[in-house]
Computed example of a mutant assay.
Amino acid sequence: MHRLAFAAFISAAAVAGPATAATLDVSDPVAYEAAHRTLVSAFQAEMQSKRNGPSLARQLARHERELPLRELCEGCEGVARSAGVGEAFEPSVWLFQPEESVGGKGRAAPLVAFPPAGNDSQWKTVDAIDASGRWVTLDAHNPPKVPVIVVRINGELSFERQVDLANAALRQAGLQAKAPEAAATRGSGRWTTRLESVRLNDDEEPWISGAAEVYAVTAGVLPGNQPQVQIVDMPYLDHDGTTYYPRQVVLDWANYSYGAANILFYEHDDNTNYQQLVQVLIQAVGQGVSLAGYPVATAIAEIAARIVAAMPAHWFSNDDDYVDALYTVEKTRGETRSGASGNITVSYIPYELPVN
């Protein structure tokens, strides 16, 4: 799988508004690790004082998804604020269960760990803390044989917040215009492209990373070939080798001037700073040579090419994974197809969104 990431262009203040010096930058490996160690220690200490580790593990096993850390650890919210975890983050926890323990009684106190900093292909070990407060070392690529509660500052729940913030920043930068509200009558509608099924062949995620957080960057044009870019979360797409049937609207053609667009798929990682994600999109398609005068098809292809080309891997210690790309998705055409890299297979249809 290719590993590409996002570069910085405009200041973080321009993207997300005023920030304080204490705001955590998860792309800084030292700050990332320090904040996680602090939260993991606080969570383990509270869990030990209440002796509720096994019951928390069973609760997480029932939900099978990340839960907000603040709901499971009363003292962790204040600790998180002290560590610089601001409004863009929702620290979360999930349970790794070894296969041999699934369905068991789960009465042993679980370890508590966090995903390491750095590129996940270079991870060797995972630091975890046991019930006595002692730090132990786990293998990053061979799953442990004991349950592990994983704490994530910048996990799935954080990314849900960040998608909204990122799209707001794109609108502020003039790269995401909303279609004007038109008079509509009952029974009429607007045309969209709806994703019926999707299957990811390989997400290359180590056990400590848990479920994938896949998102799409959609790119088309407005009049004068002005770029129209949006980030679309796909929170259901958790695991490779599984077909999902989301019936998710991924393109609203009222927001585009022409009936073709491209969809680029990426996989969010914990060390990604969403501000930098937005910055590279602004750099790639909002600056430089104008696309005015290009043939429309060329302009649409050029926007996607600029996004991909602007993602040097060295900007992140743990790069967002490039998953795949669908080029030239057409407004009036539905089909089942593989992405350009053969790593994702999707089925989509034209869908008229009715007006109530």
Rank of each mutant, 00 (worst) to 15 (best):
176 Q>H: 14
138 L>Y: 10
306 R>S: 06
354 P>Y: 02
340 A>S: 12
325 A>S: 15
129 I>N: 05
239 H>E: 15
324 D>M: 06
331 K>P: 01
26 V>M: 02
340 A>E: 13
234 M>A: 08
20 T>N: 11
185 T>N: 02
269 D>Q: 15
333 R>K: 11
346 V>Q: 03
17 G>S: 03
268 H>K: 15
214 V>W: 02
72 L>S: 14
209 S>T: 09
132 S>D: 15
169 A>K: 00
348 Y>N: 00
111 L>T: 07
348 Y>M: 01
20 T>D: 14
133 G>D: 14
263 I>F: 00
109 A>L: 02
296 V>P: 05
331 K>T: 02
256 Y>E: 04
280 V>H: 03
121 S>T: 11
265 F>S: 04
135 W>K: 12
62 R>D: 14
183 A>K: 01
184 A>M: 12
90 E>L: 13
168 A>N: 07
61 A>I: 02
266 Y>A: 15
169 A>R: 04
126 V>F: 06
186 R>W: 11
133 G>A: 09
149 I>L: 10
10 I>C: 02
343 N>P: 12
285 V>G: 03
42 A>R: 12
12 A>H: 04
92 S>Q: 04
304 A>M: 09
278 V>D: 03
139 D>C: 06
219 A>V: 05
259 G>S: 03
10 I>M: 07
318 N>A: 09
223 P>L: 10
147 P>N: 11
89 F>H: 13
161 R>H: 11
287 Q>D: 07
238 D>I: 04
62 R>W: 08
239 H>F: 12
153 I>T: 12
134 R>G: 09
325 A>L: 08
251 L>F: 06
212 A>Q: 09
148 V>W: 08
149 I>G: 08
123 W>D: 04
272 T>L: 14
273 N>F: 08
301 A>R: 11
88 A>W: 10
271 N>F: 00
185 T>Q: 10
261 A>D: 03
309 A>F: 01
1 M>P: 10
164 D>E: 15
218 T>K: 01
153 I>M: 11
105 K>G: 02
143 P>V: 08
30 V>N: 05
283 Q>W: 00
132 S>N: 13
281 L>N: 04
58 R>T: 05
64 E>W: 00
267 E>A: 12
180 P>S: 05
71 E>F: 06
139 D>Q: 12
290 S>I: 01
266 Y>F: 15
152 R>A: 12
218 T>D: 01
284 A>C: 08
30 V>G: 06
43 F>Q: 14
147 P>S: 10
323 V>F: 00
193 T>M: 03
173 A>W: 02
122 Q>K: 05
226 Q>Y: 03
